[in-house]
Simulated assay, not measured.
Amino acid sequence: MNFFGLAVIATIMVPNFIFAATHRDGFENLYKNRIVEFLEQAGRFGCFAFMILNIPVLCRGFWFDGAKTAYFAASSALTVAYLCGWIVFWKENSLRKSIVLSVVPSLLFLESGFFALNIPLIVCAVIFAPCHILISCKNAKMR
């Protein structure tokens, strides 16, 4: 079990829970593409799971000297960037908000998978990232 990954997931979920609590009407998905939506959700929940759970055979470990330090530093920086994105863009509905709040977690999952050679996380992040960014940007443009 990766407790640092659990802390990262818990931290990035905080603004999402606050948003859900303060916006009772929720988020309206205007971009209707069932395949992209399915892949995005599968990738998202896979990323959440594999940030926390390490399957020994599929998680090869930190693959170079300093990879663990780079993992902690990059994950921490991207987590802070995500929280700052929420703070800066809280009241704004814009394409730039959508880009920041979709690209940053995508990078977070990708770098976490690559630094730790966590194969399932890399696969899920590669599925999640383009779908999440596409859905976020399409919704911003359709608003």
Score class of each variant (00 low, 15 high):
54 N>L: 13
108 L>F: 07
48 F>V: 15
6 L>N: 02
101 L>K: 01
74 A>W: 03
106 S>C: 13
50 F>N: 02
103 V>C: 09
8 V>E: 08
74 A>S: 13
82 Y>D: 11
137 C>P: 03
24 R>D: 12
132 H>S: 14
127 I>E: 03
4 F>M: 07
58 L>T: 00
5 G>S: 06
35 I>D: 08
121 L>A: 09
108 L>P: 06
13 M>P: 11
9 I>N: 01
39 L>G: 11
138 K>V: 04
119 I>F: 01
61 G>W: 06
84 C>T: 12
43 G>V: 04
28 E>S: 14
91 K>D: 15
44 R>Q: 10
140 A>Q: 04
93 N>L: 12
110 L>I: 14
124 C>N: 03
114 F>V: 12
37 E>I: 06
10 A>H: 07
18 I>M: 13
112 S>P: 13
81 A>L: 14
138 K>C: 14
93 N>Q: 14
11 T>I: 08
31 Y>R: 10
76 S>M: 08
51 M>E: 07
17 F>M: 07
133 I>L: 13
42 A>G: 04
89 F>C: 01
90 W>L: 09
10 A>R: 03
137 C>K: 00
13 M>K: 10
48 F>A: 13
64 F>I: 11
45 F>M: 13
85 G>W: 02
131 C>G: 01
22 T>F: 10
120 P>C: 08
109 F>Q: 05
56 P>I: 09
112 S>Y: 05
67 A>H: 08
62 F>N: 01
